[in-house]
C-alpha cells in the first residue's frame, strides 16, 4: 500500500508539467526511499529520472516496492484540478488498477478526490553509470530557458562548448547563426543568480534543441539548473526540487559520422 501526503501540492503539479510533453506513459516506482520515475521519450533519445524522497512528504507510507503505470497526460489533467495551495494525498495499492488523488484546500473547506485508471506498461530501466564530468555549469534556470528558446528560433541544434572563457551556446540555421557566451559570474546579489563553471577540461557537444526546450519546462521547480557535460556522453540537465529530490534529464549527443 502507498499513501503519501504532500503539503506543497503545487510541486507535484509542476513535476507533471515538466515531464508530460517528453514522456507519454511511465511507471512510478514506490519504495521506502521515495516516489520515483525513470522513463525515456518515445524516440529513446532522452531519459528523465525523477526522485521525490520520502522525507519530503508530510506523511509517507509504502509497505513494499511496487510500480504504478500511468498516462502522464491523464495524470496532468487530474492534477490540474488541484489548487496551487492544495495539499495532495496519493493512495494506491500494489496490484490495484486505480490510483486516488485527494486535494484539500488549505482551510480544509473543500476536499476533492479523483480516481485515475492505471495501465500496464512494459518499461525498461537503464543503468546510469557514475561519470566524471569534464565540465559542470550551474546557472539560473530562467537564463538557460531563455537561451534555448532564443536559439531554437534560429536553428535545430545547439553546440554547448565549455572553455576557460565560459560556456558558449551556438546554433546555425537557414537565416544565420547565433552564439551566446555566459561567463562565470559569482558577484551577484543572490546566489541563485550566479553562473558557476567548473571545468576539468574543455568539452564541446551538439544536442537537439527540441529536447533542451522540453527540459526547460522544469524551470518553475528550481531557480538554478546544473548542466553536466563529458565528451561522448549524454548531457545531464538537473533541476533540484527543494527538500525533496531532483528531476534529471539525460540527452544523447549528436555524433558526427
Amino acid at each position: 500500500m502507498l499513501e503519501l501526503r504532500l503539503v506543497q501540492g503545487s510541486l507535484l503539479k509542476k513535476v507533471l508539467e515538466s515531464i508530460k510533453d517528453l514522456v507519454n506513459d511511465a511507471n512510478f516506482d514506490c519504495s521506502a526511499t521515495g516516489f520515483s520515475l525513470q522513463a525515456m521519450d518515445s524516440s529513446h533519445v532522452a531519459l528523465v529520472s525523477l526522485l521525490l524522497r520520502s522525507e519530503g512528504f508530510e506523511h509517507y507510507r509504502c509497505d513494499k516496492n511496487f510500480s504504478m503505470g500511468m498516462n502522464l497526460g491523464n495524470m496532468s489533467k487530474m492534477l490540474k484540478c488541484a489548487g496551487n495551495d492544495d495539499i495532495i494525498t496519493i493512495k494506491g495499492d500494489d496490484g490495484g488498477d486505480t490510483i486516488t488523488f485527494m486535494f484539500e484546500s488549505p482551510s480544509q473547506d473543500k476536499i476533492a478526490d479523483f480516481e485515475m485508471k492505471l495501465m500496464d506498461i512494459d518499461s525498461e530501466h537503464l543503468g546510469i553509470p557514475e561519470a566524471e564530468y569534464h565540465a559542470i555549469v550551474r546557472m539560473p534556470s530562467a537564463e538557460f530557458a531563455r537561451i534555448c528558446k532564443d536559439l531554437s528560433s534560429i536553428g535545430d541544434t545547439v553546440i554547448i562548448s565549455v572553455t576557460k572563457e565560459g560556456v558558449k551556446f551556438s546554433t546555425k540555421g537557414d537565416i544565420g547563426t547565433a552564439n551566446i557566451v555566459c561567463r562565470q559570474n559569482t558577484t551577484v546579489d543572490k546566489p541563485e543568480e550566479a553562473t558557476i563553471i567548473e571545468m576539468q577540461e574543455p568539452v564541446s557537444l551538439t544536442f537537439a534543441l527540441r529536447y533542451m526546450n522540453s527540459f526547460t519546462k522544469a524551470s518553475p521547480l528550481s531557480n538554478t539548473v546544473t548542466i553536466s557535460l563529458s565528451s561522448e556522453l549524454p548531457v545531464v540537465v538537473e533541476y533540484k526540487i527543494a527538500e525533496m529530490g531532483y528531476i534529471r534529464y539525460y540527452l544523447a549527443p549528436k555524433i558526427e559520422d
Binding site: L47, L126, G127, K254, E256, D257
Partner: peptide, 14 residues
C-alpha cells in the same frame, strides 16, 4: 552527416 544515437547506446538496459 550528423547522427542522433539513442540513449540506450550509452546506458545499458538493466
Amino acid at each position: 552527416g550528423i547522427n542522433q544515437p539513442t540513449i540506450t547506446k550509452f546506458f545499458a538496459k538493466l
